[in-house]
Each structure stands twice: as structure tokens, then as C-alpha cells.
Simulated scan of single mutants.
Amino acid sequence: MKTFIICCAAFIFTMGTNLNAQNEINLDELLTRLKQSYMGSITDVFTSEELAVLDTHFESVNSDNTNFDNRGPIIRYYGPENVGGNFGFIDKMDPAVFNPIGPIGTADFDGAGAIFPGSTMAHVIDNAGNFYEVDIITGQYIPMGIILPPTGENFTGMEFNHSTGELMAISTDGTTNQSTLSMIDPVNMTASPIGNTGLMLPIALACDENSQIITVDIDDDMVYRIDTNTATATVVGSIGFDANFGAGMAYSTDALKAYISAYNTAIGTSELREINTETGLSLLIGTIDVGNTSQMAWGGAVNSTTLNTIDENYFDFSFSPNPSNDQIELNANSAIEKVAIYNMLGQNLLTQAINETSGLIDVSALQSGSYVLNVTINGIDESYHILKN
């Protein structure tokens, strides 16, 4: 078991100031501190000057970090890069380049987030409990309210169940084996605890196509499978490296693989890795943002269909309000041929022809919850996540 420390920002700042005043930073002390486990941001533990010293050290000791064979479906991995302070993405084929979209818009460290399946919208919770929707195309953070974890805990991971559309989150107090799996209700802004996983530092969540939830505990660097009904955690196996700080996980339904973006203590920066969900072992894809200390505290894998919409910009479409009580207004540059609404089981609840560049749909009869809005423009379908109050 690794030593865990909850860092105090004021203490870290004072330590960094004193070291700078002495015009020396003790590398051995930094490396000793790095061996301890932290569940938050690396910038709360090390000053920018200390990170520069660590960068220089690891550049001198690391060999070329070549990728393993990463052929397969094109996967784009979105999330916040907390050291640089930007939301953006990396491509699985070339994680060495982080592509910023816009500044991180949370009020506190955003340690938990997930992209709604098949859409360009993510949900994020920061350490203060602020809940946001994030447009991954523009990087805009939209405040939605406050969702608090169990007392004394912070949310460290979040993921949608690909079968039911339910939003799950995991939280931990970081000092005992008290970590809670919860169901998140983004309409009523509540977190309903399912149970205690018994893990020390579960740092992220991923859900496969069979609704199996997995997490990585950075206290023992093991992968666990979590029962969504009881929160019971079952060990899968070792991840194979010393992970630290807030990390991201995501599952690609295109590649049928799980991915993790995590800081590797041995090399002094973050990597994108593929996780074998049967054994727990991870395989290196590549270093994230080569040449810089990096940390992606949550991540979402976007599939090829959604990427086509993002990259080729088929049509300019918007809708509001979201969440809605009764009606949703639709607007586009080209004629909206039709819209359809589906529940999270894929059942069609409404289909309506529009054939105009704007229109209204009545959702007053829908029960409160999450739905998928499918829009057809110029013969092209795109899906969006909507909430009914």
C-alpha cells in the first residue's frame, strides 16, 4: 500500500516559496514527495518551478517512449489538461500532441467527467460539487447546479452506463477505505449512494458495452470491477505501473477497449494506455503532450460517427432550453427534416417532421429524465442529449 497525503494548497505554496528564496530546489525531496499518492491536481502538490525541475530530471532519464501497435478505429479522447488549464483532446494515434479547445471552466478541480454516448456533450463535477455541461466542440462549460457527494468525499470518476444511459459516479475520502458508488440525477441535481466499494483511491470509471463498470485504485494500482447494484468491488488485476493524481478513464464502443490517461510516477508525466478488462494489465499507447508535465483528470472517448459530425461540420444546429419543462426550440442553417426522441432503452417516443430551419417540439408528456434527441438535416442524422424536468 502506498502512502497517501491530502495536500494543503497553502502549505505547498509556502514550501515552494521558501525553496525559491533559497535559490535551490531539492530534487530528492521532490522525488520522495512524488512517490506518495494524491487524488487531486498535480499543481496543488508542486509549484511551477518544482515541475520544471522534475521535467528536466525525467527528460534526462527517460528513453524514447514509443507507441505499441495502435492501429484500429480512430479514437479521440477529450478532457481537461489541468497543468496547462485547457480543455481539449488527444488522438489515440498521436497522444503526444494535446489540442486545446478552450480554458477549463470549472470553479474547482474537475476530477470527474463523462461524455454522453453518441453526443458532443459531457457532464462534469468539480471538487466543490459544481455540476456542468460541457460542449466538447467549443469547450464551453455551462453551470447547471450543485451535486454533492457523501460527506467528506470528493467525486473522482464519472461514466454513463452505455445500456441504460444512467450516470454513475464514484467518490472517496482518500484516507480510509470509504469510497461510494452513486447514481447521479442531472435533472434533480442529486447523488443517490448505491454502496461503499471498500476501495481507498478509486480515481476514475469506465463502462463497457455490457454495462460492466471498472475503476483503477491508485493506492494499490489495481483494476477493479464494480457491481452497479451493490457497489461490491472485485479485483481484476494489476495495471502494471505506478499511477498517481487525478486520472481519466473511458471505454470506446468502436474499439471495444478501455483507456486510461494517468500520470506515471516512473516517467514523471501522463500517458494514454489501453486496459485489458480481463486481466487489468495496461499497454502503453504513448506519452500525452510530450515535453511537458501533463494531467488529464477525466476523459471521454468519442467514436467515429460523432467525429464525422465534429470534423466535417455537416450542419449548424442548436436547441434550447435544456433541461426543458414543456417545449424545445430548434434552429439550424439548413432545413430540419425531422426530429425523433428516444429513451435510454432506444425506444422511440416521438417523431416529428419539421421541414423548416426552425421549429418547436412538445416534450411536456415525457417523464423527468434523460433522453436522446435525433435530428435529421440534409439526410444526415445527429444525436444530442436532452433533459426533461
Score class of each variant (00 low, 15 high):
Glu271His: 04
Lys257Asp: 06
Asp289Pro: 09
Ile267Lys: 11
Ser270Ala: 15
Met249Asn: 05
Ala297Cys: 15
Gln295Met: 13
Ser261Pro: 03
Glu278Gly: 09
Thr277His: 00
Ile285His: 11
Ile288Leu: 11
Ala262Lys: 01
Lys257His: 08
Leu272Val: 09
Glu274Ile: 14
Thr265His: 00
Ala266Glu: 11
Tyr251Pro: 07
Asn303Asp: 15
Ala247Trp: 01
Thr269Asp: 10
Glu271Leu: 15
Gln295Leu: 15
Thr253Cys: 07
Glu271Pro: 00
Ser261Leu: 09
Thr279Trp: 01
Arg273Phe: 04
Ser261Glu: 06
Ser261Ile: 04
Gln295Tyr: 08
Asn292Cys: 13
Thr277Leu: 14
Gln295Arg: 12
Asn292Leu: 14
Ser270Asp: 02
Ala247Gly: 07
Ala255His: 01
Lys257Met: 14
Ile288Glu: 02
Thr265Asp: 01
Ile275Thr: 03
Gly268Ala: 10
Tyr259Gly: 08
Leu284Tyr: 00
Ala301Asp: 10
Ser252Met: 10
Ala297Arg: 14
Asn303Met: 09
Glu278Val: 14
Asp254Trp: 04
Gly286Trp: 07
Asn292His: 12
Ser270Met: 10
Ser252Phe: 10
Leu283Met: 11
Ala250Asp: 08
Val302Glu: 06
Ser270Leu: 10
Trp298Phe: 15
Asp254Ile: 12
Ala297His: 09
Met249Glu: 03
Val290Gln: 15
Gly280Ser: 04
Gly299Ser: 15
Leu256Glu: 12
Ile288Gly: 07
Thr265Trp: 00
Ile288Met: 13
Ala247Cys: 15
Glu278Ala: 13
Asn276Met: 07
Leu283Tyr: 02
Thr279His: 02
Met296Gly: 05
Leu284Pro: 00
Ile267His: 01
Tyr263Met: 07
Ala250Lys: 03
Ala255Glu: 10
Thr269Tyr: 04
Glu271Gln: 14
Glu278Asn: 12
Met249Asp: 01
Ala262Gly: 05
Thr305Tyr: 01
Gly291Ser: 13
Ala297Lys: 13
Tyr263Lys: 04
Val290Met: 13
Ser270Arg: 07
Ser270Lys: 05
Glu274Asn: 10
Glu271Lys: 09
Met249Trp: 03
Ile285Asp: 07
Gly300Pro: 04
Gly291Leu: 13
Gly286Cys: 12
Glu271Arg: 14
Thr293Leu: 15
Asp254Glu: 09
Gly300Cys: 13
Ile267Phe: 00
Ser261Phe: 03
Ala301Cys: 14
Leu283Trp: 00
Ile285Val: 13
Tyr259Thr: 07
Thr293Tyr: 08
Ala297Asp: 14
Ser282Thr: 15
Gly248Thr: 12
